[in-house]
Amino acid sequence: MAEDGTGAAGGDVIELDGVEKVFDVRRKAGVLRRTRHEVRAVDGISFTVPRGEVVGYIGPNGAGKSTTIKMLTGILNPSAGRIRICGIDPARERTRLARRVGVVFGQRTTLWWDLPLRDSYHLVRRMYRIEQERYRRNLEACVELLDLGPLLDVPVRQLSLGQRMRGDIAAALLHDPEVLYLDEPTIGLDVISKTKVRSFLREVNAERGTTVLLTTHDLTDIETLCRRVMVIDHGRLVYDGDLAGLHAVGESERTLVVDFARELPPVEVAGARCVKVEGPRQWLAFPAAASAAPLVAAVADRYPLVDLSVREPAIEDVIARMYGADADRTPTPGT
């Protein structure tokens, strides 16, 4: 698009090439002795994201997601490799880049604890030098879409987690960033807040063409927002494609949880296998692609079924199954 000032090649807003981050960790191993370990948090990642795309960046705990995002903002230097955001090297020109990106760290707040939301936004306006008119327009839109109206005069320390998160997301968007990084933006939110946040992000992406990189442990975030998913495990990119493809690759399974009238030995039905028994409750795994209906019918037909529910595969499970074989490829301790 035309606004691009610094010539990001081929319209790629985010470019990573062979990026690594190695942490040097010292541990106490006795009174005076300390051992040094290397933790390869990010281990050679390359990808590009074109302008206007919404990408999910997922993986199990400790996979290196937050570390990647920190490098993309410039607050961490990569140990190796090359990063360009809108053509800018984040580590070298962090401040210049900061005016063009928005960041939300779910577990942290950019807002000022003791100030009402409104005053925090005012400081943000000054900090990013946002013109009055644009500021007013953006704030209005955020307040409306994120339902912040009644919260504007409440000090941040009095906001609930979900309210604060919505406040934070608005703060990250007041200066019209071209790129938005969201590190677990829906962590700890209730269903209503999650829905609000998701529809807001969709709106922002559609209206402004903002490029979004999002980490989450909530599959629904990915399903509702992202056309493209990247899976990272042990610091390596192990999948890059659409969500359906991920399930196929991961041979993921859904779970039918059934409650019987009494304790029974593990049930045996075609197309499913019993993976867990706990009193009268049993867990039956079946392929995610298969329909649950025949299975339910079969079980109800042969056993005293009281209640049931179907669980979607968790992203972690999908990944765990995909790469379980490589699980011993943990960060290699150095000298």
Partner: peptide, 27 residues
């Protein structure tokens, strides 16, 4: 509704003095 992303701020014009004034305003 929401504006398109702005280009590189500070380059758009405004002059150095204005930018300085805004910086002073922030601090």
């Amino acid at each position: 509704m929401l504006g398109r992303p702005a280009g590189v701020p500070g380059r758009v014009g405004g002059g150095l003095r204005e930018v300085r004034g805004q910086v002073g305003g922030f601090y």
